[in-house]
Design a protein around this nucleic acid. Sequence first.
DNA 1: AGGCAGGTGGCCA
DNA 2: TGGCCACCTGCC
Length: 293
Amino acid sequence: MNWSPWQPLGPSFVFTPDLLAETLDGGQAFRWNFDSDGDYWQGVWSTHVARIRHMDNGQLQVATPADSPETVQHLSAYLGQNVDWRAMLDALPWRSDSHLANCLKSLPGLRLLQQSFPETLLAFLCSATKQIPQIKVMCQRLAENLGSEIAPGIQALPTWQQVASASESQLRSLALGFRAKNIKKTADQLASRPELLAEIEAAPYPEAKAQLMELPGVGEKIADCALLFGAAKFEAFPVDTWIIKVLEKRYGLTGWTPTQLSQFGRIHFGPYAGFAQQFLFAWERRQKSPTRA
DNA sequence: AGGCAGGTGGCCA
DNA sequence: TGGCCACCTGCC
């Protein structure tokens, strides 16, 4: 494929290599890969593909397929250019929560990607009891086998309609394992109600979450991930094993159920609880594996 | 070599 | 409600 020349993405995007890795490949999205020869990230989201690298001054450069210059604008939106992260940070309770303050300080500039709701739901339906590298394999195989080609040799994640066209055994052959059954059932439901996801996305958080959880395989955690990462509902507070560890160890909440922890998160961290969650999650995860590409 | 991983749903008291 | 367990698959 022909790629455009590298061009600056603008002064509002300042990243260290570490921060860029955490943002693109830290568990929000699963379709970004680092090319160590070219020293850039290449990723696919919605129907777009791009490459990102950082300059010495911390600003980013982007390359797009030569025939898709509009990708730059889509990328800016995807990276949250239109979100007031500074105001959200300031509204978090770091003044009275020293652990949160440490987490914020350890990864300044961390953002939430602004992803498509349907594909975020699909990716997180793959995530149950899987680690990031394996979730990426599942997404890649879904795209290769069921998704539309958006550039030579590059496929988007399948739409739910496309997922519904596959059989459960086909989905199992894509390494989805026991998740295939629920993904197939959810795909069938969504295919029969094409407007449902848009309605959920437009609903307030509590209603949206309740409706999502009626889909097979969608419990509290996956619903919160889809709403936080795919629908910009920043009060969603996904509680996974990492967050359980943090809240036990640093907040003394031993013996709490995930539902209780999720409620605690929204009360303690406020309307942008999910933003705080991302810092806590990154911090805890990095305690275990401090070095990343 | 076996347990365990960014969960969920079903079954039992 | 609350606890326990099966469930695919791959990696330590």
